[in-house]
Simulated scan of single mutants.
Amino acid sequence: MSVSGKTVVIAGATSAAGLAVAQSLIAGGARVIATGRSAERLAPLADAGTQTEIADATSLEAMTALAARLGPVDGVLPLVGGWRGGGGLAGQSDDDLAALLPAFAAVRATSRAFDAVLRASDAGRFAIVSSTAVARPLAGGANYASVKAASETWARAVAQGFTKAARDAGEPLRAASVVFRAKGALEPDLLARSVVRLWDSAANGLNDQIIDLAG
């Protein structure tokens, strides 16, 4: 298998990581749909050859409408992110938590909206970007690590759902949900290479895996 010929959605794609992933997928022969809330911020992705869609990745309604418009999809990667931290445990403010929660909302919305189409694909892939902070949370990053832990839990539940659906249907597992863990600042090119490789492995060896992004 390879990513060539696959259709991949990058939801919340207007970061440097989103552009790097889109470029690598296109170079591998994939069709890429990139979403964001600003046409101006989506312009570099359009210039790179992606199909751009103005849509809120944190909205189940918007993602469900997008899924209905696109038809068959082979991969979904929510990339809504951000960092708030510092100040020890006492510095973990409600405002900072509120600013981080959209990342979790995007994981929930995209996975729910595209669940059926990913299961219908011959090689459906759902992937999120998390952090090694989940394994070693610090007081000054408790909000951040908590949101990432919640996102990982959700992605693992998606993996179980893929397994159960295949088993109930008496079919081989074709869809996989994985977690990428970055240490420190996310390296866009490293993430891009790792995303492209998701279609190099069969789903039964990939589903519910945590993949460390290490240089």
Rank of each mutant, 00 (worst) to 15 (best):
P78V: 11
L79E: 13
V80K: 08
V80L: 05
G81C: 10
G82P: 04
W83G: 02
G85Y: 05
G85H: 11
G86A: 09
G86R: 14
G87L: 07
G87R: 08
G88K: 11
G88N: 08
G88Q: 08
G88L: 05
G88W: 06
G88H: 10
L89Y: 08
L89C: 03
L89D: 02
L89T: 09
L89E: 02
A90W: 06
A90F: 10
G91S: 04
G91I: 07
Q92R: 02
Q92K: 06
S93N: 01
S93T: 15
D94E: 11
D95G: 03
D95T: 14
D95E: 15
D96G: 13
D96L: 00
L97E: 01
L97F: 13
L97A: 08
A98T: 13
A98C: 05
A99R: 06
L101M: 15
P102E: 11
A103G: 13
F104I: 12
A106E: 06
A106V: 12
V107T: 12
V107Q: 00
R108V: 12
A109T: 00
A109N: 01
A109K: 00
T110Q: 08
S111C: 07
A113N: 10
F114Y: 03
F114I: 07
A116C: 01
A116E: 15
A116S: 12
V117N: 02
V117D: 11
L118R: 11
A120P: 03
S121A: 06
S121W: 03
D122L: 07
G124M: 06
A127E: 02
I128R: 05
I128T: 12
V129C: 05
S130W: 04
S131M: 09
S131K: 14
T132F: 05
V134H: 03
V134Y: 01
V134P: 07
V134F: 05
A135H: 12
A135F: 04
R136N: 11
R136M: 03
L138M: 12
G140H: 00
G140Y: 01
G140W: 01
G141E: 04
A142P: 03
A142M: 13
N143K: 03
N143F: 01
N143T: 02
N143G: 01
A145G: 03
S146Y: 06
S146V: 10
V147I: 15
V147E: 08
K148S: 06
A149E: 05
A149G: 13
A150R: 10
E152I: 15
T153W: 02
T153V: 10
T153Q: 10
W154S: 09
W154I: 15
A155N: 07
A155D: 08
R156W: 06
A157N: 13
V158L: 04
V158Y: 01
V158T: 14
V158I: 13
A159Q: 11
A159D: 11
Q160A: 12
Q160E: 12
G161K: 09
G161R: 12
F162R: 11
T163S: 14
T163R: 14
K164G: 00
K164V: 14
A165E: 04
D168R: 14
D168N: 08
D168I: 06
G170P: 07
